[in-house]
Design a protein around this nucleic acid. Structure first.
Lengths: 186, 186
DNA sequence: TTGCGCTATGTACGTTTGTACGCATAAATC
DNA sequence: GATTTATGCGTACAAACGTACATAGCGCAA
């Protein structure tokens, strides 16, 4: 219903196009997986012509990499926010519990995307910087409140518990998570 | 150089064929990812004709699922062995450390396959039983030595630490792992 | 208003894909 | 040894793929 979308064939000077394509790419990956992600499906999801794909991005892999980079940056930003808000160590501990049991368990879409990212990075080593950059930011956020070693262990636990909770719904309850975090940060 | 392979065109009564195709499938997934796994590539890797693919397996997805099932069963078997050997709680603790820092970190192939499996299951819910079955066996192995709650936390930590060590080589050292396990099992 | 130059796109091409199916061929029976 | 039966495979096909490229369309200078 916007002025831009209503007029047909009038697509020039659409400054958000590149961004929209990247978001559409994440949407397609979330539903179809990387293996089902094609130029045509992305173009349809973003409502842009097929020609825009090769015009804005060098290749499909280039586009996928940029999409994953955006995903990790958004997640890292929220992650950092959560720990920036915490004023005491106890609040930080509760934030960890929240991340394990709240966030990821709720949004199936995000977890699916993260798992697709892992698989993609595992087989495309040149994109490993996406992962290392993300991990560095997470670690940094945790180190606001915990020692490097403890931060590393919390980070790993968040990773594993999120995945397990995703695969097996009643995996780790909130009180169980609270106990685990208490042990690791004692 | 085997009698079977030397003779050309003589491929009848090859009872290991189906098994060999499944193994070849894992090999292709490890190198190319699920997105690059095709009937033709698997057939070449297994040294069987293309026609054998649709003859032995209903579809490509059917084959991939069977391959992943085999993967998890093998891993679960080794996992169970490691904890069956442990006689004391301390030996069991050390086994956990070994799993985190030894196994997976070493074999890049296996970790890649596991990550491909996660992504595949996330977007193919009908294959979730492969994951839940595997997790149940792991949990069972850990519960030989630890309480259910502790076993769950160890399982999650193994998961997360393995992934982090894979993505970031100098992630968690052996002594760091030892300390974490001690905390979780205290 | 007119013409120019750059941005954006419709379309076409050569490959590769999953899958179906008719036929060759080995095992079984007499 | 001849005939039947069922197992296994070579090949063909339509659909979908990534990408290249000629050209259409718009802003801007004059």
């Amino acid at each position: 219903m916007t002025a831009d979308k209503s007029s047909s064939g009038n697509r020039r000077y659409d400054p958000d196009r590149k961004e929209r394509i990247i978001e559409a790419t994440l949407e397609v990956i979330a539903v179809q997986g990387v293996s089902g992600t094609t130029h045509r499906r992305i173009a349809e999801a973003a409502d842009v012509p097929l020609g825009s794909m090769t015009y804005h991005f060098a290749s499909l892999d280039d586009l996928i990499e940029q999409a994953f980079l955006k995903l990790t940056q958004e997640i890292a930003h929220h992650f950092d926010d959560a720990f920036r808000k915490a004023q005491t160590v106890d609040e930080a501990r509760e934030a960890v519990v929240e991340v394990i049991c709240g966030w990821f368990a709720v949004t199936e879409r995000k977890m699916t995307l993260i798992l697709e990212l892992y698989a993609y990075v595992a087989r495309n080593p040149q994109t490993r910087h996406v992962m290392t950059g993300w991990m560095a930011k997470s670690r940094q956020a945790l180190e606001r409140h915990f020692s490097p070693d403890v931060a590393a262990s919390l980070d790993a636990m968040i990773e594993g518990a999120s995945i397990h909770n995703f695969m097996h719904p009643d995996g780790i309850s909130r009180e169980a998570a609270r106990l685990i975090v208490a042990k690791l940060t004692a």
